[in-house]
Design a protein around this nucleic acid. Structure first.
Lengths: 148, 148
DNA sequence: TCAATATAGTTGACAAGGAAACTATAGCGA
DNA sequence: TCGCTATAGTTTCCTTGTCAACTATATTGA
């Protein structure tokens, strides 16, 4: 007997995770930003600047993808790219003032999306799911995984 | 204060879900099949045939995507497309014998992937996560959600 | 009956990421 | 010191999805 798609926990995780991400993408769209762009803005918010390679590691994306993502954010004047004076190869990425100003509103959307998507779960359930996910992340040695 | 990315349950779900899907994709790659193609094969396995539109609904993809996905599966001789004799607009998709023969091996990969990814959880934990995901699916009226 | 509309499927333009090749610079070691 | 190798970033090509326009066929109702 062939197992059903729904027999796999991965199926349910993917179903819900994709829903949450798509819903968030629609919210962000009103601000003219994608999910990947939000993640970059959030990562850059707490640091003075970050090298594209470091960002790629943190986000689990290739350097090529980060290069293009940075291009798009620069085109939107949300991020600034500078040469690294200490290393002729390196760049550094940082928020522009406009990028920084945008972050709080995006964070509110992230909060709202999470709350709406998981409101049918009790706080206990939410906590135990987070704990389980963290356990998997630890057990499988995940750092960060591609968005796609 | 701006919430961290990790403050959202959606973040953890996405991290784990993407890892599980990517790992599965790598396993399937050895059989020359993508995750989306596996889903089509599995959907077609239990029915005599299915219209592309119905498949699009079940998989949460657009008709355009299904059209191209079917093209690829037909090129691999895993799926067959026929005109619907009752409706000049409609087609029907069905597994070829080769497609049907491939399914059990792919199903074993799906089982193995799920087992490996979630082995750090107890059966109780796995069951409660599935229940929580089903609750969200019900509460939010999800049918099926885009893969991407 | 037949025009208006709805549905099935395909196609083309575009988006966004991965892989690998490529350029430039750093840094190590004989 | 100089050549080898490693690292930083960019770019090109490929994949796979969406969206919207398009063709063809069905269906509906005045």
């Amino acid at each position: 007997m062939i197992p059903a798609l729904t027999d796999h926990l991965g199926y349910w995780l993917r179903l819900v995770s994709n829903h949450v991400s798509h819903r968030f993408a629609r919210l962000l769209d009103a601000k003219g930003v994608t999910v990947a762009e939000w993640v970059v803005l959030r990562e850059l918010h707490d640091v003075p600047s970050l090298a594209p390679s470091r960002l790629a590691e943190r986000m689990g994306m290739t350097r090529g993808a980060i290069s293009k993502l940075a291009d798009r954010l620069i085109a939107k004047s949300l991020v600034d790219r500078q040469d690294n004076p200490d290393d002729g190869r390196g760049h550094s990425l940082a928020l522009t003032p406009a990028g920084r100003r945008l972050v709080p509103a995006l964070a509110r959307l992230a909060d709202a999306n999470d709350a709406a998507c998981f409101k049918s779960l009790t706080p206990r359930e939410r906590a135990s799911i987070e704990a389980a996910m963290r356990k998997i992340v630890a057990a499988r040695g995940l750092k960060n995984i591609p968005t796609t």
